[in-house]
Design a protein around this nucleic acid. Structure first.
Length: 423
RNA sequence: GGAGAGGUGGCUGAGUGGCUGAAAGCGGCACCCUGCUAAGGUGUUAUACUCGUAAGGGUAUCGGGGGUUCGAAUCCCUUCCUCUCCGCCA
């Protein structure tokens, strides 16, 4: 959520920059500014009315104390009018605030200056690419065939137990899954992130805090009985640790990492790129989250990108880094880099990580602030990224590391697995 | 699930209708004093909105919402949450 004061002061600039996200902000911002003026004016009037009424009440109290009840009663009569007036103003004020808020949450985050214009993922900018594509000859198999052959992931069984998109990992498949989780966590911890194990369900306030609610409500599994949501990413519970918190400047940056399963309904995304591990309703992901000083957040973003790259490099998977264009970047993000690994058997790039700077868009919702030298509270910047999402990394490993004698395990994972091959 | 208790500032915890934005203690910060370590003294210390160049002023906030009253942390209603005991259970 953007700050009204900022919109007021940088109206034209904001409109121009939101156009990069293909969002026409002109009319909504103008409405917002008008609403804000109305809000302030109403509040001033309301405050004055209450001030007068408070003053009168005090006087009445004093008069009673001094035994002058006659004059007190006379003054009481005056308060009725004030009371009625403040009631109306209060109603007007809260109505105005509600519509202000309703409009405000409809405006996406302002993209960073460097974000290229574009309409879809085809317009994303390739920043870098590294790693060799493996030569699999012409007997390369996609991972969904390989996992069935080796009996390490059973999609059918998941359908029986739960439904499509809930695979069952078994044997060495399960162990490899666990190895990846531990390996990723260890890498993140080594890079200075504190590991946290958060709840896998969150309440409404948390969903709002990171921006899943209200706009992405349909993407989350909702436990209606208790009004809780299954987390779509660890970003939600982890970032919400800091909801309503005022940090000391020297506490920044705060670096957290968490492994959690992620649950996504993926409503409306049937049919495309959904085979095998490519798109699931439940998957495992290790997330990194940083809370940073506004002056440092882009440096931190670069650092996070470099960190994720180092992991993919160690896994010896060919990958590329994309800067998302205005049309593909998320509603809440200012700048996002996606990581894609190359899946040699499917002959396509699979997204495995998304690293974003949200600037103060989330922290404004979360009321996550730090105290500056001037003793004033200011909004922190929040950042997060996947480090990494498992299924597509797993798919790429299975496909890229396939050989005549089985699936080989990347060297760095062997100590975590306890085996070097899946036959 | 049944019964009960309770939600007050960074924390502990007082406060049953007006001078209480809130005692006291702890913690934090600043300064002073003290020849080590330690202790002591004084002051200060919530957040948001809003008006103001500023100094400073106004308003709101004692879980949330509503009500009674000239006036509510305090009384009433409602809702959410937490804790304790019992039951069930990993």
């Amino acid at each position: 959520m953007l700050q009204v004061a900022y919109l007021r002061e940088h109206k034209e600039d904001v409109i121009a920059r939101l156009a990069v996200k293909n969002f026409d902000a002109k009319s909504i911002i103008e409405e917002l500014i008008l609403l804000d003026e109305k809000r302030r004016q109403t509040q001033a009037e309301h405050d004055d009315t209450l001030a007068e009424s408070n003053k009168l009440s005090k006087e009445i109290g004093m008069l009673y104390k001094s035994g002058n009840s006659e004059e007190a009663n006379a003054k009481k009569a005056l308060t009725a009018e004030l009371k009625e007036k403040s009631k109306q103003l209060n109603q007007l004020l809260s109505d105005t605030q509600d519509s202000l808020h309703e409009k405000l949450v409809q405006i996406p985050n302002i993209p960073h200056d460097s974000v290229p214009a574009g309409n879809s993922d085809e317009d994303n900018k390739v920043i870098s690419q590294e790693g060799e594509f493996p030569d699999l000859g012409n007997h390369a198999k996609p991972h969904w065939e390989l996992v069935a052959e080796k009996n390490i992931i059973d999609f059918e069984l998941g359908v029986k137990i739960t439904g499509a998109g809930f695979p069952v990992y078994r044997g060495k498949g399960a162990k490899l899954q666990r190895a990846l989780i531990n390996y990723f966590l260890d890498k993140n911890i080594d890079a200075g992130y504190e590991e946290v194990m958060p709840p896998h369900m969150v309440n409404e306030a948390s969903g709002f805090g990171t921006g899943q609610l209200p706009d992405k409500e349909g993407q989350m599994y909702h436990v209606t009985e208790d009004n809780l949501y299954l987390i779509p990413t660890a970003e939600v519970p982890v970032t919400n640790i800091f909801r309503n918190v005022i940090l000391k400047k020297e506490d920044l940056p705060i670096k957290c990492t968490a492994y959690t399963p992620c649950f996504r309904r993926e409503a409306g995304s049937y049919g495309k790129d959904v085979r095998g591990l490519n798109r699931l309703h439940q998957f495992d992901k290790i997330e990194i989250v940083q809370i940073q000083h506004p002056d440092e957040s882009y440096k931190t973003l670069d650092e996070m990108v470099a960190h994720v790259a180092s992991i993919l490099r160690e896994l010896k998977l060919p990958f590329r880094i994309l800067q998302l264009c205005g049309g593909d970047i998320s509603f809440t993000s200012s700048l996002t880099y996606d990581f894609e690994v190359y899946s040699a058997a499917q002959e396509k790039w699979l997204e495995v990580s998304s690293v974003s700077n949200f600037e103060s868009y989330q922290t404004n919702r979360l009321k996550l602030r730090y105290r500056d030298e001037d003793k004033k509270t200011k909004l922190c910047h929040s950042l997060n990224g996947s480090s990494l999402a498992l299924p597509r990394v797993l798919a790429a490993i299975i496909e890229n590391y396939q050989g005549a004698d089985g699936i080989h395990i990347p060297e760095v994972l062997i100590p975590y697995c306890g085996f070097d091959k899946i036959e």
